[in-house]
């Protein structure tokens, strides 16, 4: 290569590296700005009591205890539906071919992109009214499951399909049963991808507001069962920011707690993925 072209190539390479670095720095800076600004606004309200006390003065004072319980309740209902149903559907779709399977995939894709307010309205009509669950954690959890399920199923299917085709073919060549093949070979191999799908679903569920306003309600009281209404963290932040004068510091503190829970859930997901990768050859 002539020297002037080599110099030109080096300049272009340096420019490309610098652009990538700058864009990465911008993304990190935005996140850092967000976290620092939130922490600054939330600082006066951050204390251990925030996690243990009931809210007072419409959330301007006190803590988040019933909000956290309601969030955990809704998430539990959601995961209780999504994990078995999502895995089973992902397996069925990974095995299925043909028009019907494609129709199911297309339906899931449409559902995944449906506005949460629409899903919330549907949840209110079906779970709240038709099934008689009213405003409750159960109703909210089931509605949330409807929103999360398509994402988990499609990502789970992709993870299962990413398993090399030689693996089930080899298992079949040895006369292994399909159950053994799925339970001992395919699912363990796809486990990191399945866990990543679930972690993404949990993230979406924790951040959801609109659908839960219609279904779980916005009551600040401590829920005593899944049949009680409750206010999840995202709804609490919305209420404090939009409907409570002087609630900005509490909203920021709640947002910090939500971010911490999200980060912890993602970290747990990553740890589980790493663990499943390490423990596979056993």
């Amino acid at each position: 290569m002539p020297e002037h072209r080599l110099i030109h190539w080096r300049w272009r390479s340096t420019l490309a590296n610098a652009t990538v670095f700058a864009l990465t720095a911008v993304v990190v800076a935005i996140l850092a700005w967000l976290v620092i600004d939130l922490l600054r606004s939330a600082w006066p309200r951050l204390s251990w009591n925030l996690l243990t006390e009931d809210p007072r003065r419409a959330g301007r004072a006190g803590g988040l205890a019933p909000i956290l319980v309601a969030t955990a309740g809704v998430l539990t209902v959601c995961l209780a539906v999504v994990v078995p149903l999502g895995l089973a559907t992902a397996i069925a779709l990974a095995e299925a071919r043909g028009r019907w399977a494609n129709m199911v995939r297309a339906s899931l894709d449409v559902l995944a992109g449906a506005p949460s307010i629409v899903v919330g309205l549907f949840g209110l009509l079906i779970f709240g009214d038709a099934l008689g669950l009213g405003y409750s954690l159960a109703s909210g959890g089931l509605t949330l499951a409807m929103m999360v399920l398509p994402v988990v199923v499609r990502l789970g299917e992709a993870a299962l399909r990413a398993v090399p085709a030689e693996l089930p073919a080899t298992a079949a060549a040895l006369g292994l049963s399909r159950t053994s093949c799925w339970l001992r070979l395919i699912i363990p191999t796809a486990l990191p991808g399945l866990l990543a799908a679930l972690a993404l679903g949990v993230g979406r569920a924790l951040a959801e507001t609109a659908a839960l306003l219609f279904t779980a309600g916005a009551s600040e009281r401590m829920p005593e069962s899944l049949a009680d209404p409750g206010r999840v963290l995202a709804v609490h932040i919305y209420e404090l920011a939009m409907n409570v004068a002087g609630g900005e510091a509490s909203a920021a503190a709640s947002a910090v707690v939500l971010l911490a829970i999200l980060t912890a859930s993602q970290a747990l997901g990553l740890a589980a993925i790493a663990r499943s990768r390490r423990s596979r050859p056993s």
Binding site: P164, E166, L167, A169, T170, A171, A172, A173, L174, G175, R184, L185, P188, T189, R280, P281, S282
Partner: peptide
């Protein structure tokens, strides 16, 4: 398939020990 065992062109060990 156990009695007529097929060994593939490319070795495919299971991702196990």
């Amino acid at each position: 398939r156990r009695s007529l065992a097929l060994i593939a062109q490319r070795p495919v060990p299971f991702p196990l020990s």
